[in-house]
Amino acid sequence: MAASAHGSVWGPLRLGIPGLCCRRPPLGLYARMRRLPGPEVSGRSVAAASGPGAWGTDHYCLELLRKRDYEGYLCSLLLPAESRSSVFALRAFNVELAQVKDSVSEKTIGLMRMQFWKKTVEDIYCDNPPHQPVAIELWKAVKRHNLTKRWLMKIVDEREKNLDDKAYRNIKELENYAENTQSSLLYLTLEILGIKDLHADHAASHIGKAQGIVTCLRATPYHGSRRKVFLPMDICMLHGVSQEDFLRRNQDKNVRDVIYDIASQAHLHLKHARSFHKTVPVKAFPAFLQTVSLEDFLKKIQRVDFDIFHPSLQQKNTLLPLYLYIQSWRKTY
């Protein structure tokens, strides 16, 4: 089996927390979720979201995140109150960019949308954001926290390059993509939290790379249903696996070995980020709550012996909000 052949990389499970039942964490995340308004986002309300009498641009960002990046939404709820709305805006910006690729039928249209967001970032730093909910909220975040323009532009530029429907040539190319998107998002989150620390940035770099790799793995069944495969070609070739094997949902050992190798790289990034947690300011830990969902996925895929098409991998963990709150309460990542 794939797991038994390579099992030495995987460390002990961390979500089991001995003695936790003896201490009762304060009510927090679930209460916040219940208090949030929840009407559906419609095209009509989106168009009017920044106008008078609408929910408001902040509510639009929150709803977009809740629907399109639920794990990011849950993590954002546990940030300090003064930072929450800015991170909602930042993550909503990322969602807007991420959904361009799947929402257009022609690359030219995707490039036009990316050009809109490039100009939007430029206009935000000229205090002239367009009348668009996410743009307005992002402008507020930039003004409030003096966010670095370079990180925002890196996210747009990398998403634009990724409009080509090509597999990553190697794991390094996937890591570079993750660094310029997910890690950049974390650098900006640290700025919102008021953290300027080399060790925190180092952790953000590795956690962002782990996030990018896990996202690529999780999306494999969806991409396969659209006749697309984006997994690193070098690892596929190493194990003699073709793109057609993934399109046919082949579950042979060599296919699972490909998934094992890729998942192991995410695991190593996560492990390395945690190896120097004592040197990272505690104030930075809330920015890294996504490690909970990353670890949850890596454990699940290990349990199914790296069968990327196993139905259990597509099921939401209903206990994730609780695990996130516990992680926040324990002040760790």
Score class of each variant (00 low, 15 high):
Asp201Gln: 05
Glu106Thr: 09
Met112His: 14
Leu217Glu: 01
Tyr177Val: 08
Lys119Ile: 03
Arg84Leu: 09
Glu158Ile: 07
Leu298Arg: 03
Ser183Gly: 10
Asp69Asn: 05
Phe297Ser: 05
Tyr222Cys: 09
Gln132Asp: 08
Asn170Lys: 06
Ser205Arg: 05
Arg249Asn: 13
Arg249Asp: 08
Cys126Arg: 15
Val292Tyr: 12
Glu179Ser: 03
Ile259Arg: 06
Asp197Pro: 01
Phe309Lys: 03
Lys299Pro: 00
Gln314Gly: 09
His223Ser: 12
Ser85Pro: 14
Leu163Glu: 05
Met153Asn: 13
Ser86Trp: 03
Ala81Ser: 14
Arg256Tyr: 03
Ala92Glu: 00
Thr189Pro: 01
Arg256Ala: 10
Ser85Val: 13
Asp234Asn: 06
Arg91Tyr: 07
Tyr222Ile: 10
Gln182Lys: 06
Ser242Arg: 04
Arg66Lys: 14
Arg274Asp: 01
Ser225Lys: 11
Ser86Val: 02
Pro281Arg: 01
Asp165Thr: 11
His145Ser: 08
Gln290Phe: 09
Met237Asn: 13
Leu74Arg: 02
Arg68Thr: 12
Leu198Asn: 04
Lys172Pro: 10
Glu106Trp: 09
Leu138Val: 12
Lys331Arg: 11
Thr220Met: 11
Leu190Phe: 04
Ile207Trp: 01
Met233Arg: 03
Pro133Ser: 08
Leu247Asn: 06
Leu193Arg: 03
Ala98Asp: 05
Gly56Pro: 15
Ser264Lys: 10
Lys140Tyr: 04
Gln265His: 12
Thr279Lys: 13
Ser275Ala: 10
Arg256Lys: 13
His310Ser: 09
Phe88Gln: 12
Asp69Met: 00
Met153Ile: 12
Ser205Asp: 03
Ala167Cys: 11
Val229Leu: 13
Leu188Glu: 02
Trp151Phe: 07
Pro311Glu: 08
Leu313Ala: 04
Ala81Cys: 14
Ser86Glu: 05
Phe276Asn: 05
Ser264Gly: 13
Ile155Thr: 06
Ser293Asp: 12
Ala98Gln: 04
Glu106Pro: 12
Tyr260Leu: 07
Pro80Trp: 02
Arg303Trp: 07
Glu122Trp: 07
Leu163Val: 13
Ser312Ile: 10
Val229Ala: 13
Asp69Ala: 01
Lys149Asp: 03
Lys149His: 07
Thr332Arg: 13
Leu77Tyr: 03
Phe230Val: 15
Val104Trp: 12
Ser275Phe: 06
Arg68Asn: 10
Met153Ser: 13
Lys67Leu: 10
Ser205Thr: 07
Ser45Glu: 06
Glu122Gln: 14
His59Tyr: 10
Asn146Trp: 05
Ala178Gly: 14
Glu63Gln: 14
Ser86Leu: 02
Lys101Thr: 08
Val258Tyr: 02
Leu174Gly: 00
Asp245His: 07
Leu217Pro: 01
Lys118Val: 03
Gln314Glu: 08
Leu185Ser: 04
Trp55Cys: 14
Lys166Ala: 15
Leu313Trp: 05
Ser105Val: 14
Ser103Cys: 13
Lys154Trp: 04
Ser83Cys: 12
Gly212Arg: 01
Ile171Pro: 01
Asp102Lys: 05
Pro129Lys: 11
Ala48Ser: 15
Leu193Cys: 10
Ile195Asn: 03
Ala219Val: 05
Thr215Glu: 04
Asn94Gly: 05
Ser293Lys: 03
Gln115Cys: 09
Leu320Thr: 05
Lys140Ile: 02
Ala49Thr: 12
Lys300Val: 06
Leu138Cys: 03
Val304Thr: 08
Asp305Ser: 07
Ser103Arg: 09
Ala203Cys: 11
Met112Glu: 11
Pro129Ser: 05
Met112Thr: 15
Glu173His: 08
Lys228Val: 12
His223Ala: 11
Ser83Glu: 13
Asp157Ala: 15
Leu74Phe: 08
Val156His: 03
Ser184Lys: 07
Val46Asn: 06
Cys236Val: 11
Ile195Gln: 08
Tyr168Asn: 05
Leu174Phe: 05
Tyr222Gln: 14
Gly212Ala: 07
Trp117Ser: 01
Gln99Glu: 13
His131Trp: 11
Gln251Lys: 15
Ile124Asp: 00
Lys143His: 12
Ile213Gln: 00
Asn146Gly: 14
Ser275Met: 11
Thr318Ile: 09
Ala204Met: 03
Glu173Leu: 04
Thr318Ser: 11
Phe306Ala: 02
Lys271Ile: 12
Leu111Ala: 12
Gly56Asp: 08
Asn250Trp: 12
Ala54Met: 08
Asp257Ala: 10
Ala98Phe: 03
Val100Trp: 06
Asp127Ile: 03
Ile192Ser: 14
Asn128Tyr: 12
Tyr323Leu: 14
Val100His: 05
Asp257Cys: 08
Ile171Asp: 00
Val100Ala: 13
Arg66Phe: 06
Gln182Ser: 14
Leu174Tyr: 00
Ile308Asp: 02
Leu313Val: 14
Lys149Tyr: 05
Tyr325Asn: 05
Gly56Asn: 15
Pro281Asp: 08
Gly240Lys: 11
Tyr333Pro: 01
Ala210Trp: 00
His277Asn: 06
Asp296Ile: 12
Val134Pro: 03
Thr291Lys: 05
Tyr125Cys: 06
Ser105His: 12
Glu295Ser: 09
His199Cys: 08
Ile235Gly: 02
Leu313Ser: 02
Ala48Gly: 13
Ile195Ala: 08
Arg150Leu: 08
Gln99Phe: 11
Thr291Pro: 02
Asn254Asp: 15
Pro281Ile: 00
Trp139Tyr: 14
Asn180Cys: 14
Asn317Tyr: 08
Pro52Met: 10
Ile124Glu: 00
Asn176His: 13
Glu82Thr: 15
Glu137Thr: 03
Val104Asp: 10
Gln211Val: 11
Pro232Met: 00
Ser85Tyr: 11
Leu97Gly: 02
Asp123Arg: 09
His277Met: 07
His269Gln: 08
Gly212Thr: 03
Ile136Tyr: 13
Val282Tyr: 07
Gln251Asp: 13
Ser184Val: 15
Val95Asp: 03
Phe230Gly: 05
Arg150Trp: 08
Gly240Tyr: 04
Val46Ile: 15
Arg274Glu: 03
Cys75Thr: 12
Thr57Pro: 13
Ser264Thr: 09
Ala200Cys: 09
Ala48Phe: 15
Thr279Arg: 14
Ile308Asn: 00
Asp165Ala: 12
Thr181Phe: 01
Pro133Trp: 05
His206Leu: 05
Glu160His: 15
Leu268Val: 06
Lys140Ser: 04
His199Ser: 07
Glu295Ala: 09
His269Trp: 02
Leu247Gly: 04
Arg113Cys: 06
Pro129Tyr: 09
Asp201Cys: 04
Ala48Glu: 07
Gly194Ile: 00
Ile195Met: 09
Ile308Gly: 00
Asn162Cys: 12
Asp252Gln: 13
Leu319Glu: 03
Ser183Phe: 00
Leu188Cys: 10
Lys278Arg: 09
Thr181Ser: 11
Asn317Gly: 09
Phe297Asn: 06
Tyr333Ile: 06
Glu179Met: 03
Val241Gly: 02
Arg144Val: 07
Leu268Asn: 08
Val255Met: 09
Asp197Phe: 00
Asp305Gln: 08
Thr189Ser: 10
Ile262Thr: 09
Tyr60Pro: 05
His267Ala: 11
Ser275Trp: 06
Gly53Glu: 08
Ile262Arg: 02
Arg169Ser: 09
Thr57Gln: 12
Ser264Gln: 06
Tyr177His: 07
Leu198Ser: 04
Arg218Trp: 04
Gln182His: 13
Ile259Asp: 00
Arg218Thr: 04
Ala200Glu: 02
Lys101Ser: 15
Asp296Phe: 08
Ile301Ser: 03
Val282Gln: 09
Phe297Leu: 04
Met153Gln: 14
Thr189Tyr: 10
Cys126Ser: 15
Phe88Arg: 07
Val142Ser: 04
Val134Glu: 04
His145Ala: 06
Gln265Met: 10
Ser205Glu: 04
Asn180Phe: 13
Lys316Met: 09
Phe288Pro: 01
Leu97Met: 08
Tyr325Leu: 14
Lys196Phe: 06
Arg218Asn: 05
Val104His: 13
Asp164Ala: 12
Ala81Phe: 12
Ala54Leu: 12
Tyr73Asp: 02
Gln99Tyr: 13
Lys67Ala: 08
Gln211Arg: 09
Cys126Val: 15
Thr120Ala: 13
Gly110Tyr: 07
Arg226Ala: 11
Leu193Thr: 03
Ile326His: 06
Lys101Asp: 11
Asp165Trp: 10
Leu79Ala: 15
Gly224Ala: 15
Leu74Trp: 03
Leu186Lys: 02
Ala204Phe: 02
Pro232Val: 01
Thr332Met: 12
Ser105Asn: 14
